[in-house]
Computed example of a mutant assay.
Amino acid sequence: MTDGRKHDHIGLAAKNLEETVAFYTGILGFEVVGECTAPDGTPIKFLRNGGLNYEIFQPAGGMAPGQAEKVDHVSYVSDDIEEDYRWFMENGYECTTDGIEALDSAWEKGCRYFKIKGPGGEEIEFDQIV
């Protein structure tokens, strides 16, 4: 079910979105490949350098203590978000989102995703572009 899953992106919370994006694009050679706004108003930019992808966002409601400039989540590609969600829930994993959520402003037709709590408390996202 989950073996050989393709890595999608690493989510990074930023205190200043434009400054963080400028660093990754100007210093490390990433390019902006997409951008959108989450339903809560959080601006998001997707960056790529070769096979490495980042989702960089600046939380609209402000940063939680210790959240800034740290990895927020690691994301994997889902080819069937409903089946993946069912499997993780049936196998006792804790969902940290409100079930399967949608981000309609991402990519051309949006995406659907959910996050689970990993064994160390980290968040692991499964994401399907629509």
Results as ranks from 00 to 15, higher is better:
H73W: 02
G110E: 13
A60S: 04
R86Y: 11
E101D: 12
T2G: 12
G26N: 11
G41M: 07
N91I: 03
T25D: 03
V130T: 05
E83I: 05
K70E: 06
G99E: 02
G66D: 13
T20L: 10
F46R: 01
K115R: 08
G29N: 07
T97G: 04
F126K: 05
A13W: 04
S78K: 08
Y113Q: 10
Y76K: 04
G118S: 15
R48H: 04
G50H: 02
S105L: 07
E123D: 05
I100Y: 03
T97M: 12
A22C: 11
A22M: 04
E82A: 15
F114M: 12
R112D: 02
V32C: 06
E108V: 15
D40A: 13
G11T: 02
Y54F: 15
E123Y: 13
Y54N: 04
E83Y: 11
I100M: 01
L103Q: 14
G118Y: 14
F23D: 00
V33Q: 01
L12Y: 08
R5G: 05
P59C: 06
E108W: 12
T25Y: 04
I100A: 06
C36H: 11
A14P: 09
N16Q: 12
G34V: 00
L12W: 13
K117N: 02
T2V: 09
S78C: 10
D98C: 06
F46T: 05
V130H: 05
F23C: 01
R5I: 14
G4N: 15
Q58W: 12
D79M: 10
I116Y: 01
T42A: 02
S78W: 04
K45A: 08
Y54C: 02
T20R: 03
E18M: 09
Y93C: 09
F126P: 02
G11A: 15
M1S: 14
F30D: 00
M89P: 01
A64W: 07
G120P: 01
G121T: 11
V33A: 01
R86S: 14
A106I: 13
P119A: 13
H73M: 00
A22Y: 03
F114C: 08
A102Y: 08
E122T: 01
F46Q: 01
H7V: 15
G50A: 01
L52Q: 14
R86A: 15
D40Q: 12
I81W: 13
D79V: 12
L47V: 05
I116K: 09
G11D: 09
F114A: 10
D72A: 14
E122S: 05
W107S: 08
D79L: 12
E55R: 06
G121P: 07
G11C: 08
D8M: 07
E90F: 08
S78D: 10
K45F: 07
F88Y: 15
N16F: 04
G92P: 11
E101T: 11
K70R: 15
D104P: 14
G110A: 14
E18F: 09
D84N: 10
P65K: 11
F46G: 00
D80G: 05
A106W: 10
D84H: 06
I44G: 03
D3P: 11
G50P: 03
A38H: 14
D80M: 07
G50M: 02
R48Q: 14
G118R: 12
